[in-house]
Design a binder for these strands. Structure first.
Lengths: 93, 93
DNA sequence: GAATCACATCAGCCTCAACTGATATCATTC
DNA sequence: GAATGATATCAGTTGAGGCTGATGTGATTC
């Protein structure tokens, strides 16, 4: 999940989709990447459940799944909280 | 930053450090990875400000920086929130 | 139904980053 | 100060994954 957000192009796609639903052609235009490349990344995001698709004629709209993103955010928040509460403990050697 | 958390071994290190401060030998023992490998990853985490070091004799303790982690979490939360508030908008083709 | 457009899939290339072995450094112990 | 133990650095190798070109599929238009 976080692995997916690590790639710069995928991160850009996610950022764009956070603002509005877009179809592949929009993403190609916005990022300047090849259609094949975008499509491959979208498949990964789709398979991970991070985006959903809405077929619309010959277009395919992609929409960001806020829940999946929030789950990742919550995991990091929990880790940070855990670190704060154990900020003094230290395992002896 | 999120790129750093994407690697499985680095993610494991961060998780371990969230519980308590550990020195390199602990991390080597816990993960089963080679010392060289752990040390390389720790350098990246250090350079990114995700962990801080506390030299203690010939040991080096590593401690997780909650602020850096929280910043990443907040970024994802903001994206999720943005997606939720634009859940109906859709750019026409 | 032929042509065209939006998009998906596949196979191959190629780069980058993770892993390793050898070695250096610094502190501790004898 | 010689030996040892903990850690850092460096150069080389290798494998996973991102990118591309070619091609397939399904919907739309004429």
């Amino acid at each position: 999940m976080i692995r997916l957000l690590a790639d710069p192009l995928r991160a850009r796609i996610v950022e764009l989709l956070a603002g509005e639903a877009l179809c592949t052609c929009h993403l190609v235009a916005e990022t300047g990447a090849k259609q094949t490349n975008i499509s491959n990344h979208l498949r990964q995001l789709r398979q991970a459940g991070l985006v959903t698709t809405e077929p619309c004629g010959r277009f395919t709209y992609y929409r960001l799944n806020p829940g999946a993103l929030q789950a990742a955010a919550d995991h990091l928040t929990a880790l940070a909280e855990r670190a704060r509460s154990h900020s003094q403990s230290r395992r002896p050697c």
